[in-house]
């Protein structure tokens, strides 16, 4: 035993950020895979919410086509928000989040890895399901195409902004974290909703959408750059 320790003092393998990032991502995906029964929940929720609208309004195709972009995006917003807690919750409960905070890597990049994993687990499936639901609401082919593009640009923003909200609320013992989380996160989701739903609506009407897509793209760049920093700061506070 002494020998092992002594040798280790003279040579050590320095931490590598790239390896840590990939390991973090891989770990979260493995965990999600081991709980794969729960992966479908946000998708089922998404489908149910969208199908409530024809039932609550009326199934007139013209009406559905008009409201479809907004309905799908609002439902995606809610589904993404409800799944946010999983980014940090279980790691907080079993103490692995402490270990992540104590690693010799920039915390924001590890948070980015976790957020990317969250998007792959929830955002991407929502994105893939969206055109099916769009079809149910009688959306046109062009509109579906733009829906996919806005989804690809917009759903990562939802995960990124959401990571800040979860990081702020993960330490709360009172169970009210969920409601509080929606109060913190939903107002910040509004720009995504506006530009994404509008782009899809415009595409359905045969109008230009590059402006909206450009704005969504820059919002995505902005959130990739800043959200992990804020979430990392929030985590350090939450674990205080």
């Amino acid at each position: 035993m002494n020998d092992v320790t002594n040798i280790a003092k003279t040579t050590a393998i320095e931490p590598s950020l790239g390896r840590a990032f990939m390991a973090m991502l891989g770990r979260d995906l493995t965990l999600a895979y081991r709980h794969r029964a729960q992966l479908a929940n946000p998708l089922v929720f998404f489908t149910i919410v969208v199908s409530l609208f024809p039932l609550g309004l009326n199934p007139d195709p013209d009406l559905l086509r008009t409201i479809a972009p907004g309905v799908i995006w609002v439902a995606a917003l809610l589904a993404a928000m409800l799944s946010l807690d999983s980014i940090f919750r279980s790691d907080f409960d079993d103490g692995t989040l402490e270990q992540i905070l104590l690693s010799p890597h920039p915390l924001s990049l590890l948070v980015l890895a976790k957020t990317l994993a969250h998007w792959l687990i929830t955002g991407l499936p929502l994105l893939l399901l969206a055109p099916v639901l769009g079809g149910l609401l009688d959306m046109s082919g062009e509109a579906l195409g733009v829906l996919m593009i806005t989804g690809a640009l917009g759903t990562p923003i939802l995960s990124l902004i959401g990571s800040i909200g979860v990081a702020l609320t993960v330490g709360l013992r009172s169970g009210g974290g969920g409601v509080l989380l929606s109060l913190l996160v939903l107002p910040l989701y509004i720009p995504v909703l506006i530009f994404a739903a509008n782009a899809v609506g415009n595409a359905a009407g045969g109008f230009e959408v590059t402006g909206q897509l450009a704005i969504l793209g820059s919002l995505l760049a902005l959130s990739v750059g800043l959200a992990p920093l804020a979430a990392a700061a929030a985590l350090r506070i939450s674990l205080n």
């Binding site: 280790a8 050590a12 270990q99």
Partner: peptide, 17 residues
């Protein structure tokens, strides 16, 4: 094994561990 592999990727580790 997976738990410790994670530790290995996150921190500075002993050579040849």
């Amino acid at each position: 094994l997976e738990n410790l592999a994670m530790v290995k990727s996150l921190g500075r580790i002993r050579e040849g561990v």
